[in-house]
Design a protein around this nucleic acid. Structure first.
Length: 463
RNA sequence: UCCUCAGUAGCUCAGCGGUAGAGCGAUCGACUGUUAAUCGAUUGGUCGCAGGUUCGAAUCCUGCUGGGGAGCCA
């Protein structure tokens, strides 16, 4: 008999059906004459209750070995459950213990654990209710992202992880090298001689696939990247990782309005899709983690996002009677507290802020006619802050070259990026979305380290 | 990197100058249907590490780690 998944049995299993399941013991309750064992195989939040009667051969020995964390295989028959809390249960006919888990040392006890503690066991924590639910939602969300773009004819582009482009300006980079670090070759002026390194020049882990994905958009019209991204910043917050996943669509023949529409449709789609795919897990988050999770999802799906310009945002902040720690003034970037005030208190829903001052944004964003602002957009979500950052790109060769120079960079280093404006340039736009931040936002999880299987942060890469 | 709080039993914490306590877990026992099972008993600690102050340090001071907040950003 083939093994069935517990999620399927809980949903569609019928009494008298013969079944075989495999999984891990979540908890065991021994009574006189028989025992209840809850078995979870990761397919759903709920476990399947297995009833083992003492007339089973080797009953005492089997039960002794079935502690929390042990792995087993059960063959039996489904029966209606007389107890509360489950529709059906398995009456065990044969139980095989694959691996024991010594209860004296197995760290996951049948009680609540703090997330801090679970982080010290990256290899085991996915067997818990919360982290299990998070990772199922994460999977559903990743799947929804691909569905969304594939349905719309976007090509998934695998942009490089290793890059020599140090000119995107998006934070600190990790160097990739195979130089002998015991004996680093030096140039005459005592700098590291990267010409002797693997790529013949200094290379890095990517901080964004945007530059490359723009090149692809100018061949395939609509494309997206979805892959890991690396930042070597010494950021110690609940919203930052050194290794995270980013989604970056890029659309040719598109302006900022089209970009905003896509971003809004995109967020609505993935929330809806995850609610459909993981209703139990989402309900769990609403009950145990953050009781506004379902309302927030509903808010995203059913409301139009607010859209204001940076200039309007500054006016609203200046008009508010709130006192902010950081000053509000046209030309200064919005601080976390400003973004949160706008999204959480003033509008109480996601909003898109556009047309930021030129000097606080990247060189590739399209210059407006006033030359004081660029066609940038940030989608700000309650609780998380910036969840999406994007822009219409500067497609005019002369303007782009001028802006590269103005930011102290050398146009020659970006020769191929400029080439895209030299040959068949088109208006185009795109955005970047922090995948873990979306999962955080969806699940209500407070710390980004708990929405990725193995988080990498400063001083932390144990698992 | 800065601010701030915290490191005491397997876990969550109390004790805050006179050499250790609770709840949960685990273990054993009881219970024909439990579901964070319940009830009874038992077990459990170089008080993070290294220095220093003191007659005496878990307790006070200094360096290293974790949480929260900020900056940077996604």
């Amino acid at each position: 008999m083939t093994t069935q998944r517990i999620a399927t049995l809980l949903k569609t299993g019928q009494p008298d059906e013969s079944v075989k399941i495999q999984g891990w013991v979540r908890t065991k309750r021994e009574l006189k004459g028989f025992s209840f064992v809850e078995v979870n195989d990761g397919s759903s939040l709920a476990s399947l209750q297995v009833v083992i009667n003492q007339d089973l051969p080797d009953y005492a020995e089997v039960i002794r070995r079935l502690n929390t964390g042990a792995s087993l295989e059960v063959s039996g028959v489904l029966v209606p459950s007389p107890g509360k809390g489950q529709r059906i249960e398995v009456k065990a006919e044969r139980v095989t213990v694959h691996g024991e888990a010594d209860p004296e040392t197995y760290p996951l006890q049948k009680k609540r654990h703090s997330f801090e503690f679970l982080r010290t066991m990256g290899h085991l924590r996915s067997r818990t209710n919360t982290i299990g639910a998070v990772l199922r939602v994460r999977n559903a969300c990743a799947s929804a992202i691909h569905e969304f773009f594939q349905e719309r004819g976007f090509l998934w582009i695998h942009t490089p992880i290793i890059t020599a482009n140090d000119c995107e300006g998006a934070g600190e980079l990790f160097t990739v090298t195979n130089l002998n670090l015991q004996k680093v070759p030096l140039t005459q002026d005592q700098k590291v001689d990267f010409s002797q390194d693997f790529f013949g020049r200094q290379a890095y882990l990517t901080v964004s696939g945007q530059l490359q994905v723009e090149a692809m958009a100018l061949a395939f019209s609509n494309v997206y990247t979805f892959g890991p991204t690396f930042r070597a910043e010494n950021s110690n917050t609940s919203r930052h990782l050194a290794e995270f996943w980013m989604v970056e669509p890029e659309i040719a023949f598109c302006n900022l309005e089209g970009n905003m529409n896509l971003a809004e449709d995109f967020l609505k789609y993935i929330f809806k899709s995850v609610l459909e795919a993981c209703p139990e897990d989402m309900e769990f988050f609403n009950q145990r983690i953050d009781d506004s999770v379902l309302a927030t999802a509903d808010n995203i799906i059913n409301n139009e996002f607010e859209r204001i310009t940076y200039t309007e945002a500054i006016a609203l902040l200046e008009k508010s009677d709130r006192t902010f720690e950081y000053p509000v003034s046209w030309g200064l970037d919005l601080q976390s507290e400003h973004e949160r005030y706008l999204a959480e208190e003033l509008f109480k829903k996601p909003l898109i802020v556009t047309d930021y001052p030129t000097q606080i944004k990247a060189f590739y964003m399209r210059l407006n006619d006033d030359e004081k602002t660029v066609r940038a957009m940030d989608v700000l979500a309650p609780k998380i802050g910036e969840i999406i950052g994007g822009s219409q790109r500067e497609e005019r060769f002369n303007v782009l070259e001028r802006r590269i120079r103005a930011q102290g960079m050398n146009p020659e280093d970006l020769w191929w990026y400029l080439d895209l404006r030299r040959y068949g340039t088109v208006p185009h736009a795109g955005f970047g979305l922090g995948f873990e931040r979306v999962v955080q936002f969806m699940t209500g999880m407070g710390n980004i380290r708990d929405v990725i299987p193995f988080p990498r942060t400063p001083l932390s890469a144990e698992f």
